[in-house]
Design a protein around this nucleic acid. Structure first.
Lengths: 219, 219
DNA sequence: TAGATTGTTAATCGATTAACAATC
DNA sequence: TAGATTGTTAATCGATTAACAATC
C-alpha cells in the first residue's frame, strides 16, 4: 500500500494560469472532433485547427500526464474524458446566481452550462417582482433566504450578476455562508480571504479592449 | 509644418495584448478615484490599491506617453481623460447586437456601456416574437434587415449573442456588410479576414477555469 | 522494421520587476 | 534646495518554441 496521504504526497505542481485558461478551448475542440467521429488526432493536426503550435499543445497536456502515444497521437475520446476530469466536469457543479436581472436570467437559460455539468439551482434577488418567478424551472428566491438555502444545499459557486453598489457586501456575506468561488460579473474587485476563488467577467473591460484596437488601427 | 502623413510617420509601436488588457482596469480605478475627489496619485499608491507593481503601472503608461511628473505623480483627471482617448471612449461607438435573446437583451440593458460611450443602436433576431419589441428603447429588427441597417448607420461593432449553429454564417455576412469588429459570445472560433477584430467572451470557458481551480485545490 | 509522433530538454523570446539617473 | 517620484534602462523571471531522443 503506497503512502499517499496529503503529508507524504509530493506537492502538486502549480499550473500557470496561462495554461489553465487554454484548457477549456482544448476541451471544446476535442468535443467537436468527437462529435464528428474523429478517433485520433496528432498534436500537429490539432495545432493547425486551433491556430496554436503543436509544441504548446504537447507542453500543456504534459502538465497533467502523458495522454498520447508515440507514432499514433492522441485518442480523441480518451483525451476528451481526461480533460473533462481535469476541469472538474465529471461531476455536477451546483451554482447559485445572485442578481436575477437580465444577465442572471441569461446565465440561467444558457444551455451550454447544463451540457458541461453545471447546474443552476437557485436565483436570488431583492426585487419583489422577480421573487417567486421561475427561470427555466429554477426559482427566484428572496435574497434573505440565502443563508437557509446555502446551508441546505451543496453549492460552492455563486455567480454575481448584481449592481456594483451591492456587490462587495453580498460577496462577503456569501463567503461567510461558505461559498468557495465567485463568478463575478460586477465591475468591482473584492477584498476577500485568499482561499476564495474569483473569476471575473468584466464585460465593460472586454468591449473597451475592442474599442482600443479599432481606434489604434486608424491611429 | 511637420510632415505627419501616414507615409512619413514612424510605424506605431505595437502594444502587447497583455498591456492592452490591463488598460480598462486602470481606467476604472482612475474613474473611481476621480469620483472620490482624489486629485493626484503616485504609481506606488495606485499599485497598492490595484494589487500590481508600481513598475508595471509606469511601464504600461509609458507605452503611450509620459503622463506623470517627477516628484508629483499623476494628475487623476488628466490621466483618466488621456486613458479614455487611448481606449477610444472619447467618441461614440455604435454597436448592433445580433441575437436578441436573454444575453443580447442583457447587453442592451447594461448601463455601464452607455456610461463609457458605447451605444446600442439595434438588435436583430429571426424570432417573430422578438421582432418589433424594444429593449431600453432600442428596436429589435428582423435579421433580414441587417444589410439595409448597416448601410444606413455608422456602425463598426457587432455583438454576437446567437446560437452556435448560426454564428459562423452570420459573422461572415456581417463582415461582408462592412462590420469591422465582432464582440463574440458564441462558443465558436471564426475564420475571417485578418483585419477583422474579434473579442471573445466565452462564458463556458470562463466557468470551466473556475471549476478547474476548485477541483485542483482538493487535489 | 521504418515512419510517425510523443514526451521532454534546451534555446529563445517576451513580459515583469528592479534599479536608478533625471527632474519636478 | 531636498525629497519625491517619474521615465527608462538593465536584470530577472516565466512562457513559448524548437529540437530531438525515446518509443509506439
Amino acid at each position: 500500500m503506497t503512502d499517499n496521504t496529503a503529508a507524504s504526497r509530493p506537492a502538486e505542481k502549480v499550473i500557470s494560469s496561462a495554461v489553465i485558461k487554454r484548457l477549456p478551448r482544448y476541451y471544446r475542440y476535442l468535443g467537436d472532433l468527437l462529435k464528428n467521429g474523429v478517433v485520433r488526432i496528432s498534436s500537429k493536426e490539432l495545432s493547425q485547427r486551433m491556430n496554436v503550435t503543436a509544441s504548446q499543445i504537447r507542453q500543456d497536456l504534459n502538465n497533467f500526464g502523458g495522454f498520447g502515444q508515440q507514432g499514433y497521437g492522441y485518442n480523441v475520446e480518451y483525451l476528451y474524458q481526461e480533460m473533462g476530469k481535469i476541469l472538474g466536469l465529471d461531476q455536477v457543479n451546483n451554482i447559485i446566481i445572485v442578481g436575477a436581472g437580465n444577465l442572471g436570467q441569461a446565465l440561467a437559460n444558457n444551455q451550454d452550462f447544463d451540457t458541461n455539468g453545471f447546474r443552476i439551482i437557485g436565483l436570488f434577488d431583492v426585487n419583489p417582482k422577480l421573487i417567486g418567478m421561475t427561470v427555466k424551472g429554477v426559482e427566484v428566491y428572496d435574497i434573505d433566504q440565502l443563508e437557509e438555502f446555502i446551508n441546505s444545499h451543496d453549492v460552492k459557486i455563486a455567480a454575481l450578476t448584481l449592481p456594483k453598489a451591492k456587490a462587495s457586501a453580498i460577496a462577503e456575506k456569501l463567503v461567510e455562508l461558505g461559498i468557495k468561488a465567485l463568478w463575478n460579473f460586477a465591475p468591482v474587485d473584492y477584498d476577500l480571504p485568499e482561499d476564495v476563488l474569483v473569476e471575473n467577467v468584466h464585460l465593460s473591460e472586454s468591449i473597451m479592449t475592442l474599442s482600443y484596437r479599432i481606434h489604434s488601427k486608424d491611429q
